[in-house]
């Protein structure tokens, strides 16, 4: 059924939170929907503050610290290659990689580790960090959940920058308005108007939508139709 995974994840995100945003909750849902031992969100783009957005455990924090310090690992690769990087058996990898990362990660109890890129079009934000304390590949279901989760997490990160709430994001995603290409066309236009990155332009569009209590797609439509500018040159 169309959108089922997305709705399940959105429900999990907002369930009992009265819509208030917390990155801790975001991370926790990343872990539960993918049925992993631990999860984290690594920010790696220059467009947002670099560093960990959240981790569910000390081991997840270690996985991220190692990668920030060493500049290698599954999340670094996922971000650089812009595709999921899967290592189902870190102790016996099919190909040797991450020579500095692997030893300390194994010592920390990591047996399988997976990185999924966080991107919204050309905007690349970082990577979703998932690990398990026993080796084994992701099932097709876990893998599909992780892809959808990464999509939602990327949107959620931009939204947090705009001061919005997960509840609002959930409503927007459920209404489907978030995926209108018009939002992305408008983000490109606003980025040129303000000479900022597309990531920052997406944040500005969102903030404007929240501030004026209008759907983001409607605001974006005004930008594309040249009824609204963000540089004050109306």
């Amino acid at each position: 059924m169309s959108g089922e995974r997305r709705f399940r994840i959105l429900d999990a995100l907002v369930d009992g939170t009265n819509g208030e945003i917390t990155s801790v909750r975001l991370c926790d849902v990343c872990r539960t929907v993918t049925d992993m031992t631990g999860a984290g969100i690594m920010l790696m783009s220059g467009d947002l503050p670099l560093g960990s957005a959240c981790t569910t455990s000390d081991v997840s924090a270690l996985i991220e610290e190692l990668q920030y310090t060493l500049g290698e690992g599954p999340c670094v690769d996922a971000y650089r290659l812009d595709r999921p990087v899967l290592e189902p058996d870190l102790a016996h990898p099919s190909m040797p990689r991450w020579p500095a990362f692997t030893g300390p990660a194994l010592a920390g109890g990591v047996r399988a580790v997976f990185g999924f890129p966080l991107a919204v079009g050309a905007v690349r934000l970082g990577a979703l960090n998932l690990y398990a304390d026993r080796p084994g590949p992701l099932t097709d279901d876990q893998h599909a959940n992780a892809l959808v989760m990464a999509d939602i997490a990327a949107e959620a990160l931009l939204l947090m920058q705009a001061g919005g709430s997960l509840g609002e994001l959930a409503a927007e995603l459920e209404a489907g308005s978030n995926f209108g290409y018009v939002v992305h066309q408008a983000a490109g236009m606003v980025s040129a108007q303000l000479d900022v990155s597309v990531a920052q332009a997406l944040v500005r569009l969102r903030a404007h939508a929240f501030g004026n209590q209008r759907p983001i797609a409607e605001v974006a439509g005004d930008v594309v139709a040249r009824r609204l500018r963000f540089d004050g040159e109306n």
Partner: peptide, 21 residues
Amino acid sequence: LTRALNTRIAIEQAKGVVAER
């Protein structure tokens, strides 16, 4: 599929930059 869809979003963003400039 995910990659192809994200590519399309990237193109929409670039269209916006070109349209404005």
